[in-house]
Amino acid sequence: MVSFAAEPIFRLGFFPVTNTVLDTLIVDGVLVGAAYYIKKNLKLIPGFFQNLSEFAIDTMYNLTESVAPGRAAKIFPYFATFLLFILLANWSGLVPGFGTIGFFEGEGANRTLVPLLRSTTTDLNTTLGLAIFSAVATHILSIRIIGIKQYLGRYFSLNPINQFIGFLEMISEITKVISLSFRLFGNIYAGEIVLGTISTLFAIALPLPFLLLEFIVGFVQALVFAMLTMAFMAILSTPHHEAKEVSHA
């Protein structure tokens, strides 16, 4: 059975290179490689691949624009990168060989397989890192767009009732990070466990529907993480008076 923590494959000085770190590097490589390929082959009259990437980026941009009108240019890169990175990370765990090729550790009953590669979103380090970065980026964006005064006004007030709301806001900011990270981690990790279990029960044909399910779950979870980040950014970057107008409308 796969452990919660990612297994270190080797150490680079003080840095433990785990199987999820290796997967992260693979996902990075694919993303950067694809981006480089697209940029290099960018033409005014697009080919199939360029059409596809343009469609994807345009769709994501329009989605951002519809959620946060006027601020899409700032929010869009975060949304798109979260979506692409998490999507590839989630799906990377479904590639044959991931989680199955590795080496054995331990003796007798403790003998377990340590996979060389493991989807990076099954590591809480990754999902927590993403969630923390999402929160920090959201707050920085908020300060840059609506200004420090309005930003602080959300959490601190001389009015006791508003101060209480501000206190709740502060807690919600912390829970956002926890919910984002554990939702992603839990879903993908559980998916891997299910796949592993089903595969040990019956290796042929039976895992196929689950693979398809995990394929969809991987997409949905990436979308959920990215959309939530986008929504948080849109909410926190909306000036106070504008938010009221919106609620009245």
Partner: peptide
């Protein structure tokens, strides 16, 4: 360390 590494990576 891994947490920071992942954040920097992203």
């Amino acid at each position: 360390i891994l947490l920071v590494a992942q954040i920097i990576n992203f």
